[in-house]
């Protein structure tokens, strides 16, 4: 069952990932990307990262790609369908990808740590329940449920609070920039 789950969603992810590159219509590319992200989210879930999976959908599929579609439509991009693709770039790109994957294959073959399944590395609820401090997390763990969101939240806000502030500044800068770049002045 888990293996099938993995293979199905990997296939979806990769196939639609390829579609993103292959499709000449940008809308098709964008939608393929959405599906690919959905598959990816499923893979995240299969790795017990519910929160990340949900965020992946919420942010990428729900917001980022809508923005892309919005822009594609706003700019009405169809021009590429009538143009010759750059053969050299395509060959180069594919060659690079093949080299990269080959390299990766070699790397993975060298990576002994990677030869385990999730069953080999089970989540130890009891041990974790003893270590964790927060009561809600403890109770969840005792019940055998992985309080994924709470744990991510705890990590983010207790350990990485400073970095969160930095990201806040980043978003502020981004927002200011977007407003500046797209502001239409009232004459």
């Amino acid at each position: 069952m888990p293996a099938a789950f993995f293979y199905i969603f990997s296939a979806i992810t990769l196939l639609f990932g390829v579609m993103v590159v292959v499709c000449r219509n940008p809308v098709a590319s964008a939608l393929s990307l959405v599906v690919s992200f959905a598959g990816l989210a499923a893979l995240f879930v299969s790795l017990d990262a519910y929160f990340i999976g949900t965020i992946q959908i919420l942010v990428y599929a729900g917001a980022v790609m809508v923005l892309f579609l919005f822009i594609i439509m706003l700019l009405d991009i169809k021009a590429e369908e009538h143009r010759q693709p750059n053969a050299l770039a395509i060959v180069g790109g594919i060659a690079l990808a093949v080299i990269f994957v080959g390299q990766l294959g070699y790397i993975v073959s060298q990576h002994e740590f990677g030869n385990r399944t999730t069953a080999d590395v089970p989540i130890l609820f009891d041990k974790a329940a003893q270590v964790q401090k927060l009561e809600t997390i403890k109770s969840d763990l005792r019940a055998g449920v992985l309080p994924d969101t709470k744990l991510v939240g705890q990590t983010l806000f207790q350990r990485y609070g400073f970095q969160i502030q930095l990201v806040g500044a980043l978003l502020l800068a981004g927002t200011v920039g977007v407003v500046i770049l797209s502001k239409r002045e009232v004459k």
């Binding site: 809308v27 939608l31 519910y50 919420l58 729900g62 809508v66 919005f70 309080p147």
Partner: peptide
């Protein structure tokens, strides 16, 4: 019985816009 309930709802609900846009 997901532990990310409202997030899940928002995530999936946000996909609804594709239908309209498309």
């Amino acid at each position: 019985d997901l532990s990310v309930g409202p997030l899940y709802t928002f995530a999936i609900a946000s996909l609804g816009v594709y239908g309209i846009v498309i």
